[in-house]
Amino acid sequence: MLVVLCIKIDTKMNTKQTIAIIGATGNMGSGISKNLSAGNYRLLLFANELSKLQTLETEILAKNPTADIELSECPTEASWEADVIILALPYPAQQQIAEKIREVANQKIVISIANPLNETYDGLVTAPDTSAAEELQKLLPNSKVVKAFNTVFAADFVQPVIAEKQADAFIAGDDQDALQTASELVVTAGFNPIIAGGLHVSRTLENMSLLLIQLNMKNGYKWLAGWKILHQ
């Protein structure tokens, strides 16, 4: 039986770090894509609908004509070429895409932004002793999974300074080099990076996001809100 994978090898020399954003046209994915396009990165953008990807590309280039972006029609191919893979996906989709990229994500940094929310936003679907990021690490045992961007709203990418305070973006992971890379991405995206701890701290970060969503719905923050650590 002949099995054909949608993978190509790019032999061109490229000194920029290549970032694959899987789910680039979602609310979070588009915010991440637009903000990271201002950095010194090569972006590979994937989404299921090519027309939406093309619209996103037009919007990015209108604001930043020098952005180094490429549209991808295959998440496996985009992940193959990338140094860092950002899964800008809801929790169920994150679990599904992990199966498609497992082999090509070997030893690469994979960022999970997913919050495993239930349908009524009053709890998480994951057990208390795990998190979306830890479940991803199980599916990608040879990757360096990092939790990032899950504690901010999509609207915050347009306005990361709220009430004259720069919103914090919390990060968790077990690999120090991966945490440093994720911190640099967070800075480029406009947020203040806070390394919260090992990957198990993702449980706390996902609950923080759940609480922020609940507070937004209760108090009418219009999805423009974020966490901020104040200290001396």
Results as ranks from 00 to 15, higher is better:
V3R: 06
V3E: 03
L5K: 15
D10V: 04
D10E: 01
D10M: 04
N14L: 06
T15M: 03
I19M: 00
I22Y: 08
I22G: 04
T25H: 12
T25Q: 12
G29D: 00
S30A: 02
K34Q: 10
L36M: 04
L36N: 05
S37W: 10
S37M: 07
N40A: 01
N40E: 02
Y41G: 03
Y41I: 06
L44E: 00
L44M: 03
A47H: 09
N48H: 06
S51T: 14
L56S: 03
E57T: 15
T58K: 08
E59V: 12
E59I: 13
N64W: 13
T66R: 01
T66G: 02
A67L: 06
L71K: 07
P75T: 04
W80T: 05
E81K: 14
E81A: 11
D83R: 00
L87K: 10
Q95H: 05
A98W: 13
I101C: 00
R102C: 04
E103C: 15
A105Q: 11
N106W: 10
N115I: 12
P116C: 02
T120C: 06
Y121G: 04
A127N: 13
P128M: 06
D129K: 15
P141M: 09
N142M: 04
V145E: 02
V146A: 02
K147S: 12
K147V: 05
F153Q: 01
F153N: 04
P160M: 02
V161P: 08
I162A: 07
D168Q: 01
A169Y: 00
L179Q: 08
Q180P: 08
T181L: 05
A182L: 01
A182E: 00
E184Q: 05
V186A: 03
G190Q: 08
A196S: 14
G197N: 15
V201D: 15
V201C: 12
R203Q: 10
T204Q: 14
L205Y: 08
L210R: 09
L212C: 11
L212G: 09
Q214V: 08
K218H: 12
G220Q: 01
K222N: 14
L224F: 13
G226S: 13
G226K: 08
W227L: 09
L230S: 13
L230K: 15
H231C: 13
Q232S: 11
Q232E: 06
